[in-house]
Design a binder for these strands. Sequence first.
DNA 1: AGCTTGTTTAGAACTATTCTAATTCTCACT
DNA 2: AGTGAGAATTAGAATAGTTCTAAACAAGCT
Lengths: 150, 150
Amino acid sequence: METPVFTPDALVKRLTDSGLRPTPQREVVFKVIVEKRDHPTADELFARVKAQMPTISLATVYNCLETLVQCGLVRQVNFERAPTRYCPNLCQHAHFRDEATGELHDIDLPPDMIARLRELLPPGFNATDIELSFRGQAAPGAVPVSHGTN
Amino acid sequence: METPVFTPDALVKRLTDSGLRPTPQREVVFKVIVEKRDHPTADELFARVKAQMPTISLATVYNCLETLVQCGLVRQVNFERAPTRYCPNLCQHAHFRDEATGELHDIDLPPDMIARLRELLPPGFNATDIELSFRGQAAPGAVPVSHGTN
DNA sequence: AGCTTGTTTAGAACTATTCTAATTCTCACT
DNA sequence: AGTGAGAATTAGAATAGTTCTAAACAAGCT
């Protein structure tokens, strides 16, 4: 599983390709979410982004995130009713939520498994998106997945 | 995949076994959620339950649902940030959310697939719960799963 | 009957997110 | 470079699902 590297240029391209404008806010939000590969909430991102652009507003962070999700550069991850978390790892993968810490870990999800999951669907069901999530205990120090710093 | 039948007696037993009291409210909520095997929200359940017990409050519906979930008689299903839905089908199964209608369908999830999913976890990760959900289009009239009226 | 503990209730409170309306920016076109 | 039109940002208000609070109620025990 490789980690695709999204340069700022890639962002600009994706945006303009979708008829959207590459604004400083979008660039900062994107940069910040990529540079630390965890699964921050909008609030956490807001805090990090404000360090670099103190005038940005929370609404804008939400807006930018929505845009990035639309462009396919960021994924949303929801666990129960906890605040939505954002995830720059675009390789198809599952999530493991550590019940003790609340932390999210990426879990590798090989394409053949995805194919097999898709086969569960009866005829007439057409899935555009599959989400797999685990909940449980993670041994401290257990290292998930192989792609980069998570 | 069989549909386990939960009689009111089963509810009483589960409750008392957990040191909880079998109250009329809990029984009504349970009865109502079992008798129509869809995936209602708390609000929808509130409406249905009020027909039988007009004095019940929304908070109580939430309380009862929480209790039922704790007793393992009902499952919560979350899709993105949509209102939590409650599901009396306790056989392990996945969910398919029809993007057009918002409806949820149960999808059969055979035990061997669950086992295989579990194997995705690196050592040190111990899942107590697995959730699999699909999002997409369902051909109208497509019938999911084989257990009862869903 | 009188405690004790668990449950229900109505309404207030909370919180993540979205909406609103005004302002500012970006960019294509002169 | 300047301008106009549409897009994006902003602060704050609004929304909505859910949880909290404090008081009233119920059901066993002694």
